[in-house]
Amino acid sequence: MTIAEPLPAALAAEAGDQLADFCLWPYEPLAPAAKGLRSEAVLWAAAQLDPAGGALTEVIRALQDELGRGQTVWGIKQADGRLSYELYFYDYARAERRVSLQRVLGCLAPFAPSRLSIPDERPYFMFSIDIEPQGLAARRPIDEVNLYFGNPSSDLSSGLSYRLTADGLEFANLYHFFHTREDAEALRRKLITSARLDEAEGVADRLLDPPKLGVVTVIANKRHSDGIYYSRVRAQQMARFIADHHYPPPLVSFVQAHLNRFAHLYFDLGVDYAMVDGRLEVRKTAVYGFA
């Protein structure tokens, strides 16, 4: 598959666009947005590489019609050389929420029905849904979502995620957020305090290499790996990341060709990792933006 251009007009940035990171925390543009692209252009380009990718772009349009532009965070993930997608929805109002799980599942029902539900009164501030273009094309049901809750007992900003299926809730992941510069010592201590890492100091040097870092860094402890998220990185860092981790060459070329048009944006990156036979193994990587 190739990425056909010209790009849809809806991907062009506008001066009044509200920008946000993968937590939907807003920021000011890093450069003039004139002649720029919205971050969803990267998701659109990735979808062009999948024969069923049109279904994914239809879902994004439906969500924008339902929730408004800028309310859906997307993640492009790569594991074992294969791309997959996850969509994230935030509502920090919690008990007086506007973006509920039921509202989003209702919007997605024409593409992927679901019988999952959770009372709106539960204080989740975010949920996410794995999306496969082929599954959308086949109208395959959504049988799993991820729900995220705050962790008020912690001195650090942190969150807990749970997997929701027809069998109920199962605890999944713990996340801690750090300001990369101000919390550098605590960040490193958290990363190396892991049940999974050998030679943890050396691993920390690799994962906290300055060219990789963004404004915020998140450490996750997951069921089968640990994870690190580089939040609010520049477009050049994102382009280097997808090249270094061998994303599909047409997608890498697309990002590089339009790099100047993404200069006003931050992106967010993720790496899941573990030690295998005494060496650091990257299990999965991800790139995040919003639509």
Rank of each mutant, 00 (worst) to 15 (best):
M1P: 12
T2D: 14
A9K: 12
A12D: 04
A12H: 00
A13S: 05
A15T: 04
L19I: 00
A20H: 05
F22V: 09
W25H: 05
P26E: 06
E28Y: 04
K35H: 10
G36D: 08
S39Y: 00
V42Y: 03
V42I: 15
L43G: 04
L43R: 03
G53V: 15
E58P: 03
V59G: 01
R61M: 02
L63F: 01
E66P: 02
L67A: 11
R69N: 10
Q71C: 00
W74V: 12
I76R: 11
D80S: 12
Y85F: 15
Y85T: 15
A93D: 14
R103V: 12
L105E: 12
G106R: 02
L108P: 10
F111S: 03
F111H: 08
S114K: 13
R115D: 09
S117L: 05
I118C: 13
P119L: 06
P123N: 09
D130A: 15
L147C: 08
G150K: 05
N151V: 04
N151W: 09
S158N: 10
G159C: 02
L160V: 13
T165H: 13
T165I: 10
L174E: 13
F177H: 12
F177G: 06
T180H: 03
R181Q: 09
E182F: 04
E182Q: 12
A184N: 02
E185G: 10
R188I: 12
R189E: 15
R189Y: 14
R196Q: 11
R196S: 09
D198C: 05
A200K: 09
A204G: 05
R206D: 07
R206C: 05
L208G: 07
P211R: 04
G214C: 11
T217G: 09
A220D: 06
N221T: 07
R223W: 01
R223C: 10
H224C: 11
S225I: 01
S225V: 01
D226R: 03
D226L: 06
Q236V: 08
Q237W: 00
M238A: 10
M238D: 02
R240I: 04
F241Q: 00
D244L: 06
H246F: 14
Y247R: 07
P249N: 07
V252G: 00
F254R: 10
A257L: 08
L259Y: 07
N260T: 09
N260G: 08
R261P: 07
F267M: 03
D268G: 06
G270L: 00
Y273N: 01
V276T: 09
R279Q: 13
E281H: 13
R283D: 03
K284G: 10
A286V: 04
A286I: 02
V287S: 02
F290T: 12
